[in-house]
Design a protein around this nucleic acid. Structure first.
Length: 875
RNA sequence: GAUCCCGUAGCUCAGUGGGAGAGCGCUUGCUUGACAUGCAAGAGGUCGGUGGUUCGAGCCCACUCGGGAUCACCA
């Protein structure tokens, strides 16, 4: 066995992934007889390298698919990437600008060539990172959102929805990003609390007098086309139908009545700017008001702004405020905290802007999604509270703006007739292309990712993959993209395939830094997963990510935590070294024989192993990986290493050949199963160790263990528990009295119960190994020396005659406080059992457990009391 | 404004109505043969607060305090 004493992730991880891929372990066969299990990767954007959030959800996906593969499923873990329209275009644009190239000068076609080059470059980075993470992806089925097939799917969906009336084109107020100069959907707008101002402006009335109107965006008043009051407002009844005059511009504004106005807010008088405010737009529609757009797409004022033409919108605001002051029309400037929409991408202040765009009408789609959640086909959200999050959003959803004024993306399959202006929507261009012009715009990136679970499998073609692997089993992603992506996949899939896209949605949170801040580029606190892998190994990082938190919660990253996982792996490494060294090279899996006589340690560890296999499997089905990690950690470190291995040393040195064979069998059997359970979390190190156990095949394609009912020994657990208590008691006294293990001491163990006594007697050698006695007496009745230390544990009394070492005064005090404690426990248990309600209403198991406890406490109490009396009698 | 999450050991967090837990940190002892990246022993808790349901509450319910998130925003 040439395993170094120290676990070295770099050497362990080197080369393994390429072997797995070359062996084709991750390939999926649509024609297999095995039951399918599929997960599609949330396609990372080709804008950059993967961050810890990606590492997190792909680790979870990989854990699930590796386990399912071992359980005998035909697994498809489908890789792919997203073209990320606006984000990628911005990146490439910036790179070109650095090189002194202007996108507009080189034109659309040339620009797109640059983007495709960028895409190839970054796809390479991303694939390399997947490899380092160890993801079991089927590269034969890798997809990109702008692949031919996926683009066909996008066009088909667009045309179908257009024909069904679910997609329409129209002029509405949308969120406009003046920096990237494109429309944005509602969820691409981030609201931030800003300390702004309320400008109170005086609008003169034609018939004399004036009204006071407050606004936060004075520059938009240049586009005012009415004044509105509530129809029931007593104060303004006389004004309705009159006209006001827009200051500076001197436009006549009709005074209209609309119930939208809240009488109690401000003065109860509002200006109406249909081209620059969504609510005003609706009022304008009701009253047939003129829509005056006063801005250019870049956020500068246009010719309709008169003298302000050409000014930036914020410059115009200051200038206009000055002019209002000068005209004596500004009554007050009041500080005002309000939330202002910013572009998610460019961080520019979003302008509500009148423009012609394409929309998805959401009403029927949302209704179908909600109906599905009420049916037997409901998608299971984990944790389930996100089902409510999803529903709330769907119940209150507005139409989705899907056109984007970009070049990078799926160009909208709509053509406008050059002379008639007629609209043609189709999968292919019209027959006489010279007479038509295609819509310049592209679709929102999320329009194509919404189709991801089925477009990647070949839809709309009835491919083998689609038949076999769709719908997928679980989607794993962060809760931050429920609206952007998860919700849209759900309604898209229901609409286009008639089926839900996945059975379950497993949601994780955000990765935060040690100070609980979101990791972001601007803060510079991002942690590069590749850097973590270089320092601690992919296995350590994966285990940390998967077990560090519960579903739906954020994860605080810290080097210290990953480092402690490294320690755990080092422990596994060394436990394996020990096992393999003791097993010897000639002992193989075929030599395992668990049917002969077993020691207590053998029976106990086999029982605990089987319980662990059972619990790990059950909890994994529930995606409770934190719990799984804890179970494995405790089993391996506390039980296998600290007890079983220590006990195995006894049989390996003293035992007969038959006993050694059993120990070797148990060691190898346990190691094999532990490696398999750990493999999904730590694919590399488990493969390394597994190769020394079973060189015939890779652990990737080994079988997931099942609990073995033939090797469950419940009495062994009970006997082991007593033995452990005795050993701990001796150790504790040794520590208190500062008598190191190297110094033998006399140990007497009094056990009243005959069968228990025999059980302990037969495990004498363990007591020798762990307690190092100079003499060891195990009997039913022991005459206790006056200057002995006694400790009553469950089922036994441990007596250490340590003449001269014990302060008997202190010992008496200790025993008295112990007696007091036991008395309290006894009272509590007796009280419970005396309670008629408890005995009749609590489950049988709980009551009998309490009865057992009572007997134990009583026995312990009697022992301690006797000892105290004896000490007191003698002085 | 609405909804949701969190509050448990010094720190980070598990905890699924029935004996308050782990890792890290801290104290003490140990070159025990796989591992000193280790072993052994230990200290450290009003489970944010109040009330309720229950035989029984860290867990369920109501209210409340503190921290965070999301959605919606009225000029």
């Amino acid at each position: 066995m040439d395993m170094p004493t120290k676990y070295n992730p770099q050497s362990v991880e080197a080369g393994k992934y390429k072997e797995w891929v070359a062996a084709g372990y991750f390939k999926s066969d649509a024609n297999s007889d095995k039951e399918p299990y599929s997960i599609v990767i949330p396609p990372p954007n080709v804008t950059g390298r993967l961050h810890l959030g990606h590492a997190w959800d792909t680790t979870l996906q990989d854990i699930i698919t590796r386990m399912k593969r071992m359980q005998g499923y035909e697994v498809l873990y489908l890789p792919g990437m997203d073209h990320a329209g606006i984000a990628t275009q911005a990146k490439v644009d910036a790179r070109l600008r650095e090189q002194g190239i202007d996108r507009r000068e080189i034109g659309r076609e040339k620009f797109l060539e640059h983007v495709w080059n960028w895409k190839e470059e970054y796809a390479g980075f991303i694939r390399h990172q997947w490899e380092k993470l160890g993801l079991g992806l089927d590269y034969d089925k890798e997809r990109f959102t702008m692949d031919t097939g996926l683009s066909d799917a996008v066009r088909k969906v667009f045309v179908d929805m257009y024909e069904k009336g679910l997609i329409y084109r129209g002029q509405y107020i949308i969120n406009w990003d003046p920096v990237t100069q494109t429309a944005l959907s509602d969820i691409e707008v981030v609201h931030k609390e800003i300390e702004g101002h309320f400008y109170h402006v005086k609008y003169p009335l034609e018939d004399g007098g004036h009204v006071e109107i407050a606004t936060t965006r004075p520059e938009t008043m240049l586009g005012d086309t009415a004044i509105v009051v509530h129809p029931d407002d007593e104060r303004y009844q006389g004004m309705i139908g009159q006209h006001a005059v827009l200051p500076i511009v001197n436009r006549r504004l009709p005074i209209i009545a609309d119930p939208y106005v809240e009488q109690a807010f401000g003065t109860g008088v509002m200006k109406v700017t249909p081209a620059h405010d969504p609510n005003d737009f609706v009022i304008g529609e009701r009253h047939n008001l003129e829509r005056i757009n006063v801005m250019h797409p870049d956020g500068t004022m246009n010719e309709s702004a008169g003298k302000y033409d050409g000014m930036d919108r914020f410059e115009c605001r200051s200038a206009l405020v000055e002019d209002l002051k000068a005209a004596d029309c500004l009554l007050e400037i009041e500080p005002h905290l309000h939330s202002v929409g910013h572009s998610e991408r460019s961080d520019a202040v979003v302008e509500p802007y009148l423009s012609t765009q394409w929309f998805v009408g959401m009403d029927t789609l949302a209704e179908k999604s909600l109906d599905n959640q009420d049916s037997d086909d409901a998608i299971r959200f984990v944790p389930d509270r996100f089902d409510a999050t999803f529903r709330r959003w769907m119940e209150d959803i507005r139409d989705w703006v899907i056109s984007r004024q970009l070049w990078w993306g799926h160009q909208i399959p709509a053509w406008y007739h050059k002379t008639t202006g007629e609209i043609y929507v189709g999968i292919e261009a019209p027959a006489d292309p010279e007479n038509w012009e295609q819509d310049e715009d592209v679709l929102d990136t999320w329009f194509s990712s919404a189709l991801w679970p089925f477009s990647t499998m070949g839809w709309p073609e009835e491919t083998d993959d689609l038949k076999k692997f769709f719908p997928t089993n679980v989607l794993v992603t962060g809760y931050d993209i429920i609206f952007f992506w998860v919700a849209r996949m759900i309604f898209s899939s229901l609409e286009h395939t008639g089926e839900y896209p996945f059975e379950d949605v497993l949601l994780h949170g955000l990765v935060r830094d040690e100070h609980n801040r979101k990791m972001s580029k601007s803060l510079g606190n991002g942690v590069d997963p590749m850097d973590v892998i270089d320092r601690y190994g992919a296995d350590a990082m994966r285990y940390f990510l998967a077990t560090g938190t519960t579903p739906g919660h954020d994860l605080k990253y810290s080097d210290a935590k990953v480092e402690s996982v490294w320690n755990f792996i080092n422990k596994i490494w060394n436990a394996s070294r020990f096992s393999l060294m003791n097993i010897g090279e000639n002992f193989t899996m075929n030599d395992i024989d668990l049917n002969g006589d077993k020691t207590l340690a053998d029976e106990w560890i086999l029982t605990r192993l089987n319980e662990t296999v059972r619990d790990v499997t059950r909890l994994s089905e529930q995606y409770e990986f934190g719990e799984v990690g804890r179970l494995l950690y405790n089993f391996i470190w506390d039980e296998f290493c600290d007890w079983y291995i220590e006990m195995a040393k006894v049989s390996m040195t003293e035992g007969a050949e038959r006993e050694k064979h059993m120990t070797r069998s148990v060691l190898l059997y346990t190691l094999d199963r532990v490696m398999k359970m750990l493999h999904p979390f730590m694919p590399f190190v488990t493969e390394e160790i597994y190769q020394t156990i079973d060189a015939k095949r890779s652990i990737v394609v080994s079988e997931w263990p099942e609990p073995d009912d033939d090797h469950m020994y419940m009495e062994a657990k009970e006997r082991m528990a007593i033995l452990v208590e005795i050993i701990k008691s001796v150790r504790q006294t040794r520590n208190e009295l500062n008598t190191p293990i190297s110094r033998p001491i006399n140990i007497q163990i009094e056990v009243k119960d005959e069968s228990r006594r025999q059980g302990i007697e037969s495990n004498r050698s363990y007591l020798v190994q762990f307690c190092n006695p100079s003499a060891l007496e195990i009997a039913e009745n022991i005459k206790v020396e006056d200057d002995a230390k006694t400790d009553v544990v469950k089922g036994a009394t441990v007596i250490l005659p340590l003449s001269g070492l014990i302060d008997m005064e202190a010992e008496l005090t200790r025993l008295k406080s112990e007696l007091e404690r036991l008395e309290g426990e006894l009272k509590r248990v007796e009280g419970k059992l005396a309670n008629e309600n408890f005995v009749s209403k609590a489950p049988e198991a709980v009551v009998s457990k309490e009865k057992e406890k009572k007997m134990d406490y009583q026995a312990q109490y009697d022992e301690v009391k006797e000892r105290i009396e004896s000490l007191e009698r003698k002085g």
